[in-house]
Every structure is written in C-alpha cells, then in structure tokens.
Write a protein that binds this DNA or RNA. Structure first.
Lengths: 343, 343
DNA sequence: CTGAAAGCGCTTACAG
DNA sequence: CTGAAAGCGCTTACAG
C-alpha cells in the first residue's frame, strides 16, 4: 500500500549532483547553474517521476502556505458564497485552504482552531461564534494573522470584513415604505448570543423606524432560533395589528417565513410585503420573485484574503486593525409590491 | 510578526526530562512513566503554553491525517451536501479535510491533485471531471488511496459511490405516468464530455420509455451546457407536440427550466408536469412545491469516507474495487399533479 | 522508567 | 558553478 516516494536524494544521485543543487533547481534559482546541470536534473525528475514533499519543505521554511477558514454555519448561503471567493483568491496566491464548519458551536470551533494551529496554518479567516473570545484574544495579542468575516469579536483589536448592516436594513425599510407598507416587522435568528450582524440589524431596524418617524413596536421584532422562529411569526400575525410587511434577516429566516406564508395562504406582495437580506438563486424563480438586499460576497471574501496576506508582508506595518464595512445593494423584484401597484 | 513557538525541546528542558519522554507523554504512552514525571511534563506544557507541531510529526510519521476532496462543481447543491457529510465523518475520525473546487475544469483539477499530493494528503475523495483519466490511472495503479463520488472514471479499477441513476429516472417517469403525463422530456447538462451520471440519466430515460412501451423521441432529450440549456427548452415547447412533462436532471437544470416557465407563463402542474433529481431547500416553498427524486447524500458521503479509511487498514486486503450504488427516494409534492387531479 | 541518537525530506548559509 | 553540513520539530527503536 505504501508507495516509496522518490526523494530529493534519489534525484540528486540519479543526476549526479548534490541535494543542494536539486533544491536550487526546484526553487528556480538557476542563476549560477550550468545549462547542462539543469537539464540533467530536469531529466532525473522526469524519469523518476519525482514529486517534492511539501511537508518537509514546510517544516524547514516554517510556513505551510495554507490558511484555515472557520465558518460558523456553512448552511447559510452567504457563507458558501464568501468561502468560494476566499478559496479562489487564496488559490490565485498559491495558498491552500482548509475549510472547517463550526456549526455555530463554540466547542467545535475551539477544536478546529487548535487543530489548525497544530497544522501550522499561516493564518486564519473566521466567521466567529461568540464563545471563544479568550482564545481569539490570545491569538490577536500574539500577533497571529487572523481576520474576521461577517462578525467580529468584541473588544479585540483585529481586522474584520463586515456588511454595513444598518444601511442594509434602512434600504429594506425605505423600499417597503416607498411601496406603501407602513407596519413593518423584522425577523432574525436569536440575538441571545450577541452575534454582531443580528444585533446590528435589530438596531438598524430601530434607527430606521426612528428616522422615518414611525413607532418602534417591540412586538414587531422577532429574534428567535430557527426551530422556533415560525412560532414567532405566527404570533406576529395574531397581533391585533399584524404587520403589513416583513424584513427577513437572512435566507434561513426567509425560508421559515415562506413556509409560514404558504401554510397560511398569505400572498406575498398583496397580503404582506417582503424584503430579505442575502441574495440566493431561488429568489428569482420564486412566485412572486423576491426583492433582496444583496451583500457583495465576492468582494468581501477577496478583501478578507487581501487583509490577511498583507499581514505576511513585513513592509506593511500594521497600522492598527480596522472594521471594513461593505455596502449592500438592493435587487428590486416583486415581493414588495401590492397587487397592481407599480412604483 | 513571527512568534517563536515553544518546541518539544523547550518542554523537555523545562521539565528536566528528555525529548523522548515528552514525546511519549504526548502520544499518551504512559505505561512506563512515573507519575511524577508525567505531572512535571504536564505542568511544563501548561506553563509554556506548548502546542505540538503537526508538520514535524507528519514528516516523521509520513502521514498527515488529512484527506483532499476535489469537487467538480461546488455550486451544485448535491456536492455541497455530500461534502458536508464527508467533512463531518472525516472529522469524527480525526482527519482534516482540504476541499478544492475544480469548476468542471480538468486543468484546475490536475493542478489541485498535484498540490494535494505535494502536501502529502493521505488520500483523495473526488468528484472527477473526465479530463484526467491518465493521472487518475497512475494514482490508482500505484495504489494511492482514492475513492470517486457521483461519477467514476472509465476503465479504472477503483471504488466509486454512485446514485442508481437509472432507477432515479425510472422513478421520476413512473410517477409522471401515474399522474397522467405521457409525453415526457428530459433535461440534463451537456453529455459531450461523457460525464457518467448525465449519460446514465439519458440512458435511464430511454430504458424507462421502452419499459413503459412509450416511443423514444430524440427531440425530447435536451442535454446542453447550462448557458444554452434555456434555448433547448424553448425548442421543446416549439415542437409540434410539446412535452406534457419534464424530468430535470439536477437542481441547476431545474433553475433554468423554472426561469423559462415563469417567463413564458407555463403553469407547473397544470401546463407541464415536473419532477427533478436532487432535493434542495427551496423545493418545498416553491409554488407549487416540487416533487423530487432525492439522493441519500449523507449516506453517500459517509460511505466514501468509510471506503477510503478502509484502505488505510492493512488487514483489509483490497478485494477489488467496486461501484457502490445508492437508492434514490421520491419526495412527492405538487409539481406533477394536474389541476384538481389527486392521486 | 528514561535518554542519546538517528532520521523523516527538505533548504540555506557557507566554503571552495 | 556546486557540495557538505546543519537544522526545522518531531518519533522511535534501542540501550541502559
């Protein structure tokens, strides 16, 4: 089963040179190499079908050229999209990516951080849960290259790539108001664990209501864990004054709402207006098509990689960590139009 | 920026023992270790905040405990689901996973295979394109642990985890027939590159038609690349006798069909019956909800890992490679019911 | 019960 | 232009 690999020594012997010279060749330092030597090595590598061992290289170089990515919840399509961008960008820069899914579970997350560090990843990009502040603090304090995405960890001086969540909610609400919906409710997953985007989206809801001189009704704010969110939605529509429109915090909360709506024969648009954050492929084919506040997922992933790679560049003095906010954009479709009404 | 790591030597010095003894401790070989020694080492590790370096360990052990996963197209939700299962299962067995997306591009795929091998992954799980037969052949012939998922590479004696594609199509067609649809067309992505499941699905279509004594109309078989599939769909409905129902090969072809249907005001169910392969979250909330032939994605991912790990077990003589076929199941919803007609 | 030594497969000053 | 030597951080027979 075990295949004896051919090593650099085999190549050296075969080409009748030293290991050093082969190594020079492998690292493309041809400057002082005779044409003939180069060809001999080239041939030896070919004949022996030699494949360099990167583990050995990594050990010597103290760099593995791999980045660990830990995502809180890979089922969330925003995450998949950003990860896709991260992997692409990293790959372009000759880095490998190890993707881990923490399932919103701090224990799993901790475990992943530790095994990634043991594997000597050169840096970490993480969508953090809020359960490992101390661990992250230690990493950040010791200057280990790390950048956060989507969420940040409170009180840590580290880079983070975030959506402008307040703006996102404002856009959603403004669109709804323009289209004649006034009593607007917001749906997010639970904010008990203080996950930043959810908190910001709820705050954004409140500030938007204030800005548009509308009352803030606590009963219109439903932040619940996914399995019990539908109950919350039901409560909303049992209210004396049920909402005329819904802002859904992401694609997962949207699914719950859509299920509720179809079970209760609520017509999207005419019965309830709807805008959701996060663009997913099925928005377009839903009937009616769903108006969406999209995050620039590709740019966000790219930025995260860029920030991380900058840290490897010694010439770049760390000029203090920052939170980078990205602008959402609205994709107007039909879910926030009352029957017949056109803007 | 670089943090000097504490190494096993530091721990040894601090605990006043040799590196060997620390290593014994790390590998939990306590048999011959004095209680007191153990405690001293434990403390030293704690004090120095020592983290073992897995790269060094891997080099010595010639095993990295990591598996490379190469997926042909990560945008395909079947792949995401299987990968999720693979990662979970691997993680339970203390293996790391490196996921790479080949984008259905043999060149990218080749590149990934090479870098994964250079990184000394212990094995490979791959959803192969059909462009690297020779490379895969070399790997399989040299006994490198590899298992294929979803597709296999022709003429290679290797394990593969596959859907019973013929059965899947038969189930779809039988369901459609039972519900009163007779003229049935099938949609898949292009079969020019001979990607196995597509080919099998088209074959399955033909064998099903034969089995049910229906004519096989070539014009009802549309196998096109995604960007031009919609044109193929249009052709279908311009036929003298347009199909009464559609079997969609996967979630991506489904999207194209759904877009076409909504643009042309085709009512799913009453105007055209529809069954698709691959269960995705939005099937349920689509209007009408979509009847689906589901693949047992979790079991398939789990099986792939199991087959791979078996190869590491020397006691298991390789009893010849096999193709493992998994049974699809049907999730009946409303997209294959004519208005008013109930089964 | 514990330590000295060799070695995994590379890279990199340094010498010549 | 090329080679000998040391070393990256571990593990594992082997000796005592």
């Amino acid at each position: 089963m075990t295949i004896e690999k051919t090593t650099i020594s085999d190549v050296a012997k075969y080409a009748k040179v030293s290991k050093s010279t082969v190594s020079q060749f492998l690292n493309e330092r041809y400057e002082y190499m005779r044409e003939e030597t180069r060809e001999r090595i080239e041939q030896a590598i070919e004949e022996l079908n030699y494949q360099p061992n990167n583990v050995a290289r990594s050990l010597k170089l103290k760099s593995t050229a791999t980045i660990g990515v830990i995502v809180a919840n890979i089922l969330h399509s925003f995450s998949t999209q950003v990860i896709r961008a991260i992997e692409d960008t990293l790959n372009e820069n000759d880095f490998s990516t190890i993707i881990c899914n923490a399932d919103d579970n701090p224990k799993k997350e901790k475990n992943y951080i530790e095994t990634l560090l043991a594997r000597q990843v050169d840096g970490l990009i993480v969508f953090p849960t809020s359960g490992n502040r101390e661990l992250y603090k230690r990493l950040v304090d010791s200057n280990f290259p790390i950048v956060f995405v989507d969420r940040y960890v409170n009180g840590l001086n580290s880079d983070a790539v975030m959506l402008d969540n307040e703006k996102a909610i404002h856009m959603a609400i403004e669109h709804l108001l323009t289209n004649g919906y006034e009593d607007i409710a917001v749906l997010t997953t639970s904010i008990d664990t203080a996950v930043v985007p959810r908190v910001e989206r709820v705050q954004g809801y409140k500030s938007a209501m204030k800005r548009f001189d509308l009352p803030i009704r606590e009963a219109y704010i439903k932040s619940r864990d996914l399995p019990v969110l539908k109950k919350g939605i039901a409560e909303l529509f049992k209210l004396e004054k049920p909402p005329q429109a819904i802002v859904s915090g992401n694609d997962l909360t949207l699914m719950e709402f859509l299920k509720y709506a179809s079970e209760h024969d609520l017509k999207i648009g005419s019965d309830v207006g709807l805008v959701t954050i996060d663009e997913v492929n099925f928005m377009e084919i839903h009937n009616p098509p769903i108006t969406t506040i999209a995050q620039p997922t590709f740019e966000m992933g790219e930025k995260a990689v860029e920030l991380l790679l900058d840290k490897f560049d010694d010439s770049n003095q760390s000029e203090g960590a920052q939170i980078y906010r990205f602008d959402p954009s609205i994709i107007v479709r039909k879910s926030a139009e009352k029957a017949g009404v056109r803007i």
